[in-house]
């Protein structure tokens, strides 16, 4: 599986309150959540994000609340993958569980700039920066998590096992 898209970049400690503010948590409908994704730190995101775009963050991406609405909002915005130096653990679990592809790669997080065109090979974990003509290796998922990812999320995996 591969993804290719244009990069929208943010900094360290992007918390779930800015990914989707609590004032919109009266719903969990993905399309509605996507309309307000990132608006407290980037009012332009909703207008400019294109299907397949890749979000790049710094350290501790997704810190804060456990709201699954955060990865749901990002996924429903059309983002094909989030790359970060590292992720807060609940966001990490939630992304895997709902099938939002994420990759941990410090080098990519530092080197990739806003607007770069990036291609990701999920089978090898290789991230290629087509704009800068460089590539980075993301950390591999342990087999257990790969099973959840390839099943299409945690619920699909439990159904398979039944």
């Amino acid at each position: 599986m591969k993804a290719k898209g244009c990069v929208i970049k943010y900094g360290d400690n992007i918390d779930t309150d800015v990914i989707i503010p609590a004032r919109y948590l009266s719903t969990s409908e993905p399309g509605e959540l996507a309309l307000h994704c990132m608006e407290d730190i980037d009012k332009t995101f909703v207008g400019r994000v294109k299907k397949g775009d890749i979000m790049v963050g710094g350290a501790n991406f997704g810190c804060g609340s456990s709201r699954e609405h955060a990865p749901i909002a990002i996924k429903a915005s059309g983002i094909s993958c989030v790359i970060a130096k590292d992720f807060a653990r609940i966001f990490f679990r939630n992304a895997i569980n709902i099938g939002l592809p994420i990759l941990e790669c410090a080098q990519a997080s530092e080197d990739i700039d806003e607007g770069d065109e990036v291609e990701i090979d999920f089978d090898t974990g290789v991230i290629t920066n087509l704009t800068k003509n460089r590539s980075y290796q993301a950390a591999a998922f342990p087999p257990f998590m790969q099973e959840i990812i390839s099943a299409g999320g945690l619920i699909a995996k439990i159904r398979e096992e039944k």
């Binding site: 456990s66 699954e68 609940i90 679990r93 939630n94 569980n97 945690l154 619920i155």
Partner: peptide
């Protein structure tokens, strides 16, 4: 803390 999907799996 976990998310809603983990909660669903836990309840099941």
């Amino acid at each position: 803390g976990v998310g809603s999907t983990d909660m669903a799996a836990g309840m099941a």
